[in-house]
Design a protein around this nucleic acid. Structure first.
Lengths: 354, 354
DNA sequence: ATGAAAGCGCTAACAT
DNA sequence: ATGTTAGCGCTTTCAT
């Protein structure tokens, strides 16, 4: 375990000694500032090579420099949606030399608060957050304070009264379109299965759902809206089972899953119940995935440009960090990207309409 | 943008002033070392609260302390396998107060080398790596050097001549079992679709495949082993198409996909070709996933204890970091976890056995 | 063009 | 029990 035994680290000073120059000069060549003559420069570079010197960014940070790292708050990196976001973010950040610190909150606001605390202590330059803050729930003081004081870009979700830029999909529109699609097919009892907590994106989707019902004169029934206790496949299956166990006359003829985990759960429950899609029940998922085309039948889904959401958010944060004024303007505080309804074969008209 | 404007940071010194004590005393209370009287301690705590002081871990690191952060090398965090590993790792690390820095290499050794460089510069305490190093390929000097000098635990893959602990599944055994299953069903032309590069875990699976063929007196045909160019669904589909386009007498009667992306690609290609599973062709996947049960037919897969691999690796690294000695012993340098063949309905006996 | 020296915020002897 | 002081490795004036 020779790594980092205090004291044996190669420093700027030793490089200087080796190259026959002062530490300051070495600093200039590695930092690329000030003036260094070409021959000196080469000698220093050679010494760096020989000693296998690596600048200590920790020490650099001490002199007011950036840490070149940003934190990312997600519910769960296992979830392909967040995986894709994280990937997009990392791809973008690395172009600017930043590293990504991942924090899984499971949508728990306390876990989020705790991660935020360690991120502050680590003095990350900024954060990208799929916050666990819920609609109409009070936000812990330290959480609000953190987001207000630290360069932050929200992803997918926003939080009331925390005015930072947010990049998200058109959740309202996407849900509206999906529900209208079902209504036009003749469905009148359309259920929604959402998981976890009442985060802003889910809230928006629910609003889109309700607006569609309303626009088409359909009665809203709150027993058709299932909010799983947690965000997970099993939770989605549980909710779907409740729906499927209703008496035939009340039972929904269509279900829309508000995220991929919930949708998987719905699919599981339908198979369990021995029902077939779309003959017995129509299904729409949220977020596309490769296997969707391979399911029998191929699944109709609402797609959002997940990768773009991540990369735009990251670019936005970088702009904030490099202090570009233009990004503090009101008109790009909120970027909403279009969703798309990809119609495959999991929806038809209900057997006995009405 | 008031965050971190140099100079306005609340320091130990201001806290001291506020509490009427020296900076050193403040350090003692936040660090929990040395002796502080209870009243003083309370005054300091109060000052910390009032000023909303947060210790600067960057500065702490300067005094030889740990950074409390570890890097993690993966191919692609989007891949559910790596997502799950990352999740397990983060869950474990956070218990010990460490944070996780994610690095996506796309299995490119140069990208890996470049991330390793920034991780050294950031002086992470250690790293967990699904290395991109391939079997029988030379490893860049800096990469080998890094792994040898930095506390490292390999995950899923190892690298020749880099003697660090590794946690992995029984790739050989898992593949052997899957292939024997197929052979016993009567298959004689069994294809393998692997993606990306010849990383040690894939190599081991291939060995298991070959051993099974050999043990049962089946001829190895290298046109039945497809190594996709990249690791991705499309690459898997491409490979599978080549297999399916073979003349019927040569065409494989079974395909095993060596990871979830490849398997998805195989499924896609089979559907495209209008073939049905398992009547026209049997399929086994690697790595289980929730939707596997919902496919028609439900997919037979080789499962590995992914979460455990991640958490064991993380625990191992922590032990290396905090307890050093005991974990440097030979007998736990390599931990191999059992796989399991989950038999569902995607395999039957081939229609016209020879 | 290069060097000397003063910190950045904190820890850890060493004093008192 | 608490204060003083000297760095950690680097950047950055200010001299030379």
């Amino acid at each position: 375990m020779k790594h980092e035994s205090p004291g044996n680290e190669v420093t700027i000073r030793e490089v200087g000694k080796r190259a026959g120059v002062s530490p300051a000069t070495v600093g200039r060549v590695i930092g690329g500032y000030g003036k260094v003559s070409e021959p000196t420069r080469q000698r220093v570079l050679e010494a760096i090579r020989q000693l296998d010197y690596h600048p200590n960014t920790i020490a650099q940070s001490m002199k007011g420099k950036q840490r070149k790292s940003v934190g990312m708050i997600v519910s769960d990196i296992c979830n392909p949606f967040f995986g894709m976001i994280a990937r997009a973010v990392d791809d973008t950040l690395i172009k600017y030399g930043y590293n990504l610190v991942i924090c899984n909150t499971d949508d728990g606001i306390d876990k989020e608060a705790s991660y935020l605390k360690t991120l502050t202590e680590k003095r990350v330059d900024g954060v990208l957050a799929c916050t666990a803050c819920e609609v109409e729930r009070k936000i812990p003081r330290p959480v609000r304070k953190f987001y207000l004081e630290t360069p932050t870009v929200f992803i997918d979700r926003e939080a009331e009264g925390i005015d930072v830029p947010v990049i998200q999909a058109d959740n309202f529109g996407g849900a509206y379109e999906a529900v209208v699609h079902l209504i036009q097919l003749g469905h009148e009892r359309i259920a929604i299965v959402a998981g976890g907590s009442m985060v802003s994106s889910i809230h928006q989707r629910l609003q889109g759902y309700m607006k569609a019902l309303q626009d088409f004169g359909l009665q809203f029934r709150d027993d058709l809206v299932k909010l799983g206790r947690l965000l997970g496949v099993e939770s989605g299956a549980y909710a779907a089972r409740e729906l499927l166990n209703m008496p035939a006359a009340e039972r929904p003829t269509a279900i829309v899953g508000l995220n991929n985990l919930m949708t998987t759960g719905v699919l599981l429950a339908i198979r369990e119940a021995g029902m077939t899609i779309p003959d017995d029940i129509s299904v729409i998922g949220w977020d596309d995935f490769d296997l969707a085309q391979v399911l029998s039948p191929p699944l109709t889904v609402v797609t959002q440009p997940t990768y773009s959401i991540g990369s735009i958010a990251a670019e936005h944060l970088i702009a904030l960090l490099e202090r570009q004024r233009s990004y503090r303007q009101a008109n790009d505080r909120k970027i909403i990207l279009k969703t798309e309804l990809v119609i495959r074969e999991s929806c038809t008209s209900p057997k006995a309409p009405k």
